[in-house]
Nucleic acid binder design. Sequence first.
DNA 1: ACAATAGTGTCTGTGAGACAGTATCGA
DNA 2: TCGATACTGTCTCACAGACACTATTGT
Lengths: 220, 220
Amino acid sequence: MEKYDPSIYEKPSVAVDLLVFTIEDDRLKILMIKREESPFKGKLALPGVFVGINETLDKAAIRGIKEETGLKDIYFEQLYTFGDVKRDPRMRIISVAYMALVPIQKLDFTAGKRTEGAWLLDVEELLESDKKLAFDHRKIIECGRKRLEGKVNYTDIAFNLVDEEFTLPELQRVYEILLGKTLYKTNFRKKVADMIEETDYQTAGEAHRPSRLYRKKDIE
Amino acid sequence: MEKYDPSIYEKPSVAVDLLVFTIEDDRLKILMIKREESPFKGKLALPGVFVGINETLDKAAIRGIKEETGLKDIYFEQLYTFGDVKRDPRMRIISVAYMALVPIQKLDFTAGKRTEGAWLLDVEELLESDKKLAFDHRKIIECGRKRLEGKVNYTDIAFNLVDEEFTLPELQRVYEILLGKTLYKTNFRKKVADMIEETDYQTAGEAHRPSRLYRKKDIE
DNA sequence: ACAATAGTGTCTGTGAGACAGTATCGA
DNA sequence: TCGATACTGTCTCACAGACACTATTGT
């Protein structure tokens, strides 16, 4: 630390921006809102909250997730901190981005404070389009998308995008969506074999062979 | 973003803490300083700087590295942001940790502003000891140590810890130190084969077969 | 019977791991 | 010649990739 007293210097504001990912209709989606004020009025933005002076970053993220989705106890992790000087044209705001994953079955984002003005948008479509997003939120989403893809293969992060009980074809589709390529059933099953455990249930009512339900093995 | 004007709320200070890693005497070392003021007076701490109101996070990290080591143009990356409320007992300071890697040949940390009170400490020794460090700096160092180990195998990050020209035994020792285990020569060479290119030089003057010098292949 | 999807058996190629062997320096 | 370290050849084994095959539902 330096010798000067930081309290006499001008300080930045610190916010938490949230990337709430889910999978809907076999597509990766992200929760976004439409800004109703300047700057970037009318543009799409990530939901976010300012970090309270007596609030940890994780707590701020949890609070933001709760406000937007009504949910707590969902998976989240800190992504990266964005600190360009002019990322917000009004004033200096440093943004700590957090990524949250939620199975679509749990997600009812009108359950939060916001009852309208929020959407689940297709991430690939959004990133491929040249639509202007608020602030540096395009860059933040790209960062989250990469992290997601990077962690699929060497963590169990994908399990956070399926319901508590899931079929292997469902889980495989999640892997395929995150990786952006198709996988072979056999190989996929071998890979996840030691992360799952059977239940006694299976799907029914569809015009094909039923599929066994599994759950994530918690120990090990 | 929320509706309130953040400028009327109390803001945290934002600092960048630096983990300057190097390898000296076949050990992973980190640059640390002894605090001369309260709090944690006399305790070891990571060097750090406050982020200027018109300075990006990366720029603050570069400035800090320059002040401590006299170096610019060395490898660094953002590690993680630590925002516990009481991590600094004086006031709320959010710390964005950055990790820098520098080959020992380039490192002369008395070249910076600080001419004394800085040391290269053995990271494993430090983490195994129960020595009290300033702030949450033990946790930050653990975080950096893990990141380093995690990235060795699927990036070329280890190359930042050897000189521009290096022998394969040297590079292998870096890998071994970061991974904490010995490697087989043959397999190691196969792994790095497509990341290196030969030079026309080799070591001399040692009582054994000389070793060819390589450099990192930049294209590809 | 048939369409549709779930699930299995097995061959192959790639790459990590292990180890034995050869090469080249100074003393 | 010898000790020490640099470098190479090659066997094995685990695992990802590829693909053919069988199984079970509703219509």
